[in-house]
Design a protein around this nucleic acid. Structure first.
Length: 492
RNA sequence: GCCCCCAUCGUCUAGAGGCCUAGGACACCGGCCUUUCAAGCCGGCAACAGCGAUUCGAAUUCGCUUGGGGGCGCCA
């Protein structure tokens, strides 16, 4: 450990949606910062003008906010080390690159993309490792002048040492060693004047006084270059920790074909931020041998790099679903209603009258509270409470070990008894229907099953009497009549 | 192809030489509860990749093999 104050950063590039793998990296950085009482900085790495997507910054920031990952410095927050958009720091990078050239640690390269492409193809043919052949390292003054005269725009390349070994101590992987001879000269400044990730992140991490770089494992092999860059620039490098990757179900890099991959999609699918946070934290980190559910504060208190593991983890949606269910059930009824309402409003068929009655909704939702794994399931679970007519096959009305005739009789008798009821409460319904089953020579389950289908149009639903109570007398009677008709019309 | 990293149930993981006939969770399969579903409870299935070495003793240490992942862009 250095004795520098803890300052970590999340440095997304605004090229698309916030990938859950990326967000997991953000989360670990945030947890690390909060655990140590350090700073969490967000820096936008918008140095690829071609790939930058409008609105992406907002989406990424929105994802962080949704999860409650607050940042101390960055867009919207300001800070003493800004600007926090790399596109606004171009001068700084140009200056750094200029210094490296003067020092002899970097050089202009005029090789065209075309030549580089051909070079790589040739290397592939020869089964040689691909990499820049350093041709422009030894350009004479005349050759250089010639290129300039032709108006060629150079890139700046880093002169990586040709021999020796670069070794460093990764906080998670411990000693990692690379042979310098195998590492080529990376581009520092592109021909459009923008820096590459390598230069920009090194310069900014230094300037922003980042103490620990926690990033995904895919960066492990470029770390030697970064280390040499720090050295050439005269900076003291931060400590590095390369986090395990997040993989899809087939063990390949998590991508769209594995399903939802953007944090925004999970939000839209009705996952709760607390569940998402908890789940993501457990991908590559664990507290002990049994704890699964942890609050944000518990996560902060117990998060350490020592307990981050080295193995890539598969993003397991099944377990996320279970965990989300746990969090949903832990919600108070009113919180559940408040959170589910927008999903209901959006998910119910268009013919359902809007606005939805708050009072009615508040009576319906408790019935499915413990049955929902995501908020997005709520409309499907409750639509029969809202729609006018039910759609189901008449056969569904016929319960186990019953036939058309006995079902018809059960329906007609029930209808008569229900019509005769003065009240229509849960207990009253049970008091009427349970004895009726006996009277009809049916098991309670058989009668209730018939009525459940008649009233909800489905075989799986919330408890019958509660459902009927909420649905109300008029609606229930109407549906029983419809069920009778439907059964009569059914072909024998 | 070259370089780097990794390797415990299907999945997420516990395990830092004897506590391990390897623990927990998801999923799955039974059972209980029960008007269906869900929830809950009880039980079950299921793993130390292989081979050598070190050691009285190895999932834990070392080596090799195999397997998986990542990197090798004027992307990040």
């Amino acid at each position: 450990m250095t004795n520098k104050p803890v300052r970590v950063r999340y440095a997304p590039s605004p090229t698309g949606h916030p990938h859950v793998g990326n967000i997991r990296t953000a989360l670990f950085n945030w947890l690390f910062a909060r655990h140590h009482g350090g700073g969490f900085i967000v820096r936008i790495e918008d140095t690829d003008t071609a790939r930058t997507v409008a609105g992406a910054v907002e989406t990424i920031l929105g994802g962080l906010k949704w999860l409650g990952l607050d940042w101390d410095e960055g867009p919207d927050a300001g800070g003493d080390y800004g600007p926090y958009y790399q596109s606004e720091r171009l001068k700084i990078y140009t200056e750094a690159a200029g210094r490296l050239i003067v020092q002899g640690d970097a050089y202009h390269c005029y090789c065209s993309p075309q030549r580089l492409k051909e070079m790589r193809e040739e290397q592939a043919r020869q089964k040689q490792p691909p990499g820049y052949d350093r041709r422009c390292r030894s350009l004479s003054a005349e050759e250089k002048a010639g290129c300039e005269a032709k108006g060629m725009k150079p890139v700046v390349r880093f002169k990586f040492p040709r021999e020796g070994v670069t070794e460093f101590n990764d906080l998670i992987r411990e000693k990692v060693k690379f042979e310098n001879a195998l590492i080529d000269d990376i581009v520092l400044i592109k021909s459009d004047g923008y820096p590459t990730y390598h230069l920009a992140s090194v310069v900014d991490d230094h300037l922003m006084q980042i103490s620990h770089v926690l990033r995904a494992e895919e960066w492990l092999s470029s770390t030697p270059r970064h280390l040499k860059l720090y050295k050439a620039l005269g900076y003291e490098p931060p400590l590095f920790a390369h986090l395990p990757m997040l993989l899809g179900s087939d063990r390949s890099k998590l991508s769209k074909r594995h399903g939802a991959v953007s944090i925004t999609e999970y939000r839209e699918q009705g996952y709760l931020p607390a569940a998402m946070l908890n789940f993501l934290a457990l991908l590559g980190w664990s507290l002990d041998d049994k704890t699964e559910i942890l609050t944000r504060q518990e996560l902060i208190d117990s998060f350490t790099l020592e307990r981050v593991n080295k193995t890539a983890a598969i993003f397991n949606t099944e377990k996320l679903g279970w965990m989300n269910g746990v969090y949903i059930r832990a919600l108070s009824p009113s919180e559940f209603s408040r959170l589910a309402l927008p999903f209901l409003d959006r998910g119910l068929p268009p013919q359902v009258k809007r606005p939805l009655s708050t009072d009615y909704v508040n009576r319906v939702l408790p019935l499915v509270h413990e049955r929902a794994r995501t908020l997005a399931e709520v409309p499907d679970l409750t639509d029969f409470f809202f729609t006018g007519s039910l759609e189901y096959a008449a056969e569904m009305l016929i319960a186990k070990r019953m036939d058309r005739e006995s079902t018809l009789k059960a329906l007609e008798t029930s209808l008569k008894r229900l019509e005769a009821m003065s009240g229509f409460g849960e207990d009253a319904l049970e008091a009427v229907l349970r004895p009726l089953a006996v009277e009809l020579g049916l098991k309670a389950g058989q009668l209730f099953g018939v009525l459940r289908v008649a009233v909800t149009g489905r075989t799986a639903a919330p408890p019958l009497f509660q459902t009927m109570t909420v649905l109300g007398r008029e609606n229930c009677l109407k549906r029983l009549v419809e069920a009778t008709t439907r059964l009569r019309q059914m072909a024998k």
